Amino acid sequence: MSTVVQPADYDAPRAEFEKQLGFTRLDFNDTDEWEKRVVAQAIKHIAANNLVFTTDQVRPLLPEVHPNRIGAGFAAASARGEIVHVGYTKSKKVSSHGRVVGMWRSTTSPRHGVIRTPGRVDPLPS
């Protein structure tokens, strides 16, 4: 039978803490991916159901996510050619105090009867 010999400076509580910290890091990475997917789904949903939209319409659909994740989600959707930036407006969210936010529209939603070209702003239908 072998015996495990610990170094003289072995600190069992510290070792347990480091082990749990490692698990926390794994959970955090999973949360990052989950948040990205949730934000992407919310943007797709709003884009499919609104001709022009802002972050004000996406935020209420989301659980508590890191605030930077929403802007990053819009940037990613734009880079994938799913949405296109069409202008600016003041936020209607009271806590934003009229801050300027981007206006976006879908480039892929056939619901609006227009197939939009990524990277080019087509005129809005009347």
Results as ranks from 00 to 15, higher is better:
residue 58 V to I: 10
residue 47 A to Q: 02
residue 18 E to T: 07
residue 87 G to F: 00
residue 79 A to K: 06
residue 82 E to A: 07
residue 40 A to D: 01
residue 67 P to V: 05
residue 47 A to C: 07
residue 102 G to M: 12
residue 94 V to L: 09
residue 87 G to L: 01
residue 72 A to N: 15
residue 106 S to P: 14
residue 50 N to G: 15
residue 43 I to T: 04
residue 110 P to L: 03
residue 77 A to I: 01
residue 20 Q to S: 02
residue 66 H to V: 10
residue 5 V to T: 08
residue 107 T to S: 04
residue 93 K to W: 02
residue 63 P to F: 07
residue 89 T to C: 07
residue 117 T to D: 09
residue 1 M to I: 08
residue 71 G to H: 08
residue 56 D to R: 10
residue 47 A to N: 03
residue 18 E to F: 06
residue 25 R to A: 03
residue 42 A to V: 12
residue 68 N to G: 15
residue 5 V to K: 05
residue 33 E to H: 15
residue 10 Y to I: 14
residue 50 N to Q: 08
residue 30 D to E: 06
residue 90 K to T: 03
residue 36 K to I: 12
residue 17 F to Q: 15
residue 40 A to E: 01
residue 115 I to Y: 01
residue 6 Q to I: 15
residue 85 H to T: 14
residue 93 K to G: 12
residue 19 K to N: 05
residue 12 A to T: 10
residue 82 E to C: 12
residue 23 F to C: 14
residue 49 N to S: 14
residue 97 H to P: 00
residue 40 A to Q: 02
residue 48 A to T: 03
residue 103 M to V: 05
residue 87 G to D: 01
residue 119 G to H: 02
residue 57 Q to H: 04
residue 118 P to W: 00
residue 39 V to F: 05
residue 40 A to C: 04
residue 85 H to E: 09
residue 43 I to E: 01
residue 55 T to D: 07
residue 18 E to H: 08
residue 58 V to L: 13
residue 103 M to G: 13
residue 59 R to M: 14
residue 122 D to Y: 08
residue 74 F to W: 03
residue 54 T to K: 11
residue 17 F to G: 08
residue 125 P to E: 07
residue 37 R to A: 14
residue 79 A to N: 13
residue 116 R to I: 00
residue 11 D to W: 15
residue 26 L to T: 02
residue 23 F to I: 08
residue 83 I to Q: 03
residue 74 F to M: 11
residue 70 I to T: 14
residue 5 V to E: 14
residue 18 E to S: 11
residue 46 I to R: 14
residue 116 R to L: 05
residue 111 R to A: 06
residue 114 V to E: 00
residue 107 T to D: 01
residue 58 V to M: 11
residue 102 G to Q: 10
residue 6 Q to V: 12
residue 112 H to R: 04
residue 92 K to A: 04
residue 61 L to W: 05
residue 116 R to Q: 04
residue 119 G to F: 00
residue 6 Q to D: 13
residue 74 F to Y: 12
residue 11 D to C: 10
residue 80 R to V: 00
residue 17 F to H: 11
residue 77 A to E: 02
residue 89 T to I: 01
residue 10 Y to W: 13
residue 38 V to E: 05
residue 113 G to H: 09
residue 11 D to Q: 11
residue 51 L to P: 07
residue 12 A to Q: 11
residue 100 V to A: 13
residue 56 D to P: 12
residue 21 L to K: 09
residue 77 A to Q: 03
